[in-house]
Design a protein around this nucleic acid. Structure first.
Length: 265
DNA sequence: ACCTACCTGGCC
DNA sequence: GGCCAGGTAGGT
């Protein structure tokens, strides 16, 4: 999404902005948010964990988290709006940036980077799994000092940033490690395998333009195709693609979890 | 470190 | 009607 937004939005100016729900537009108040965004030009688009960051010429950042069901769409204004559209921003090329989110678990924030980071508006985030610093040593540090189950530790955004329910199950299966293991008990070689699996799973998912398991859509409202290559997520009770044994479905870290009792130890 | 709440929609 | 869903955030 960030790559597509970078292409679509960099150099574009926001002409007219409307926003309602203060639950979605969390900071500042929606009226101030709209006023501050109007007339601003996007200078770049970045990502940190699951946060999408649009850099503006005002030195503010427009920060978006999609939650479970959020969509950022770049569309012609003539296209009918999704039912739960909360933010609209008319662009200087005649198109519109829209945020819709049925469950309203997502949010948008606008302000100087330091303010968003300092004032507890944005949470503390851990290491970037697709960054150059995601070494076996850094991964070991991230998993050190927690007795939690491996999956619960990986869901913790302050340890590794950006992993969620789908890709954690996928990476654990690829690495042959049970998500129920205690995070600090992994052997060095297991951690190395898991680190490589995380990078591989995420890289493939991005190449495949995301997992449209349910409502995920890209900025042009198109589905990804990574859901077609998922190994375990959503396949509880079905045969493991590696060994054929029925995949086990349980709950780990409060989330539905699927793994292979044969291939994952 | 764990549990529940927050929301709507889709499925059974 | 009840249950489940890509994710936090806040209380205990």
């Amino acid at each position: 999404m960030v790559r597509d937004l970078r292409t679509e939005l960099t150099g574009r100016r926001f002409e007219k902005v409307t926003a309602e729900h203060p639950k979605i537009v969390r900071f500042p108040l929606p009226a101030v948010f709209c006023r501050s965004l109007t007339g601003r030009t996007v200078t770049g688009v970045e990502r940190r964990g699951k946060f999408i960051i649009c850099r503006l010429d005002s030195d503010d950042d427009l920060v978006t988290h999609l939650g479970m069901t959020g969509h950022l769409l770049v569309t012609q204004p003539t296209v009918p709006e999704a039912p739960h559209t909360h933010v609209r921003a008319l662009l200087d090329d005649g198109r519109e940036l829209r945020y819709d989110d049925a469950r309203r678990f997502g949010r948008m924030l606008l302000g100087p980077r330091e303010i968003l980071e300092s004032a507890h508006v944005l949470p503390r985030l851990g290491i970037e799994p697709l960054g150059e610093h995601f070494t076996p040593e850094a991964f070991a540090t991230a998993l050190k000092g927690t007795t939690r189950q491996l999956k619960a530790a990986l869901l913790d955004q302050s340890r590794v940033a950006g992993l969620g329910n789908i890709y954690i199950d996928e990476a654990c299966h690829l690495a042959g490690i049970r998500p129920t293991r205690r995070a600090h008990r992994l052997r060095r070689n297991e951690r190395a395998a898991l680190r490589d699996a995380i990078v591989a799973i995420l890289t493939t998912a991005v190449d495949n333009r995301g997992s449209s398991v349910d409502t995920y859509r890209d900025v042009w409202n198109a589905q990804g195709k990574n859901q077609e290559v998922l190994r375990v997520y959503g396949r509880g009770g079905e045969p493991c693609l590696r060994c054929g044994r029925a995949l086990k479905q349980t709950v780990v870290g409060g989330r539905t979890t699927v793994f292979c009792q044969e291939c994952q130890r």
